[in-house]
């Protein structure tokens, strides 16, 4: 496997392309605040939801803007605002779990490879390239199909294919930092490998890692929603954005808000995540 050209399609998001147009710092803080607000919304979804998301509580198929049901109700009378809030909670935290696990697994492998160099580096990066060259989404679908359909297995499936990208980026950063004078100086001063890694190399990697991860959240939100749409998520009555759209496809032409609202919530999550990622990049900088 030649390393050339085997690049993750996800390189499209955090690519150097958008670095051209720098957002102002004030605006960047506002964008990051938006992400924080969304996270708060997700944390307190259960408190904010006016009704039980699973129990039918109102008239059937009320349109949005109805007095007691801000976003209306679905065809069996469940409150759409409540379902959407619960769905946002699930989607947002699931995406964070995937990104953090990718960051941790990829971080460990990338750091090991970058620090060890030589044979171990070669071995680990070959392994990483192999994962990058396989079609991640499809492999994730196959994993979930084999293990059984539930949210936990979906997270495992995506987690398995999501780390290699981080491993590559972090290995590159570690390699670049390891040859810098301050690391050389620490080595000459007699610092052990563990001390060098944790005190002198990793702190320098963190900004890039955070920027990369924050720009990636939107991708994961979309992927999770897509798998949920296909039925690879929570089973039936549980509120989940992708699945709620899929289950109500039949109402698209008669009561379009029922399938569209969960989809719009996914758009909101992915939009806020992407804008927030841009903000984080402007504020932290990183190497990109």
């Amino acid at each position: 496997m030649s390393a050339t050209g085997i690049v993750s399609p996800r390189l499209r998001m955090p690519g150097p392309v958008r670095a051209r147009r720098r957002t102002g710092r004030g605006l960047s803080w506002a964008l990051v605040a938006l992400v924080a607000l969304l996270t708060l919304l997700a944390i307190f979804a259960r408190l904010l939801a006016p009704y039980d998301p699973v129990q039918p509580i109102g008239a059937l198929s009320l349109p949005p803007g109805s007095p007691d049901h801000l976003l209306g109700t679905d065809s069996i009378g469940r409150d759409l605002l409540s379902r959407t809030l619960y769905g946002i909670q699930v989607s947002w935290f699931a995406a964070l779990v995937v990104v953090v696990s990718g960051l941790v697994i990829g971080g460990i492998i990338g750091t090991l490879a970058g620090v060890a160099g030589g044979f171990i580096d070669n071995l680990l990066m070959r392994f990483t390239d192999l994962f990058l060259a396989l079609p991640g989404t499809l492999v994730a679908i196959a994993i979930v199909a084999a293990l059984g359909y539930n949210l936990q297995n979906t997270l495992i499936g995506i987690g398995v294919v999501w780390w290699p990208y981080y491993a590559r980026i972090i290995r590159g950063e570690v390699k670049a930092l390891a040859s810098r004078p301050h690391v050389e100086a620490a080595r000459l001063a007699g610092a052990g490998p563990a001390r060098i890694v944790f005190r002198h190399v990793l702190p320098g990697v963190i900004p890039t890692a955070i920027v990369t991860a924050s720009l990636d959240i939107g991708n994961v939100v979309l992927l999770l929603a897509g798998l949920s749409f296909l039925g690879l998520g929570q089973p039936a009555p549980a509120p989940e954005l992708g699945a709620d759209t899929a289950r109500n496809l039949g109402q698209l032409l008669t009561e379009p808000w029922i399938p569209l609202i969960p989809g719009l919530a996914v758009l909101l999550l992915s939009l806020v995540a992407n804008l927030g990622g841009d903000g984080v990049r402007t504020l932290i900088g990183g190497r990109r």
Partner: peptide
């Protein structure tokens, strides 16, 4: 481009 493809599809149909 940041919207989920299924939303684009449904929006297009509507």
């Amino acid at each position: 481009a940041t919207a989920p493809p299924f939303l684009l599809a449904l929006g297009g149909i509507v």
